[in-house]
């Protein structure tokens, strides 16, 4: 298997689209987005660079108990 395949093999959504023969299919990778939100909630530096204010809605409405620095 070539290196490109190697990378491709791990992109399940791309492979799904390819197998269904619909490369332009709209798909929203929501688990990725929510992980991104969680990351910003976990680390104030990330939140800041993303332009969230610490008192902003984003932090208050979606508190996350799993935020644990490792």
């Amino acid at each position: 298997m070539t290196q490109d395949d190697w990378k491709q093999r791990n992109d399940d959504i791309a492979r799904l689209k390819q197998r269904l023969g619909d490369e332009d299919m709209a798909y929203q990778d929501i688990s990725r987005e929510s992980e991104l939100l969680a990351a910003c909630r976990r680390w104030p530096l990330l939140a800041e660079s993303e332009g969230w204010s610490l008192q902003g809605d984003a932090l208050n409405t979606q508190t996350d108990d799993k935020a644990q620095p490792v």
Partner: peptide
């Protein structure tokens, strides 16, 4: 293994189109 590293990679992948995959 590092949560921070995973988070940063995810964020950079989203924000920096020139991040090498």
């Amino acid at each position: 293994i590092s949560q921070l590293q995973r988070d940063l990679l995810l964020l950079w992948g989203e924000r920096h189109s020139r991040l090498i995959p």
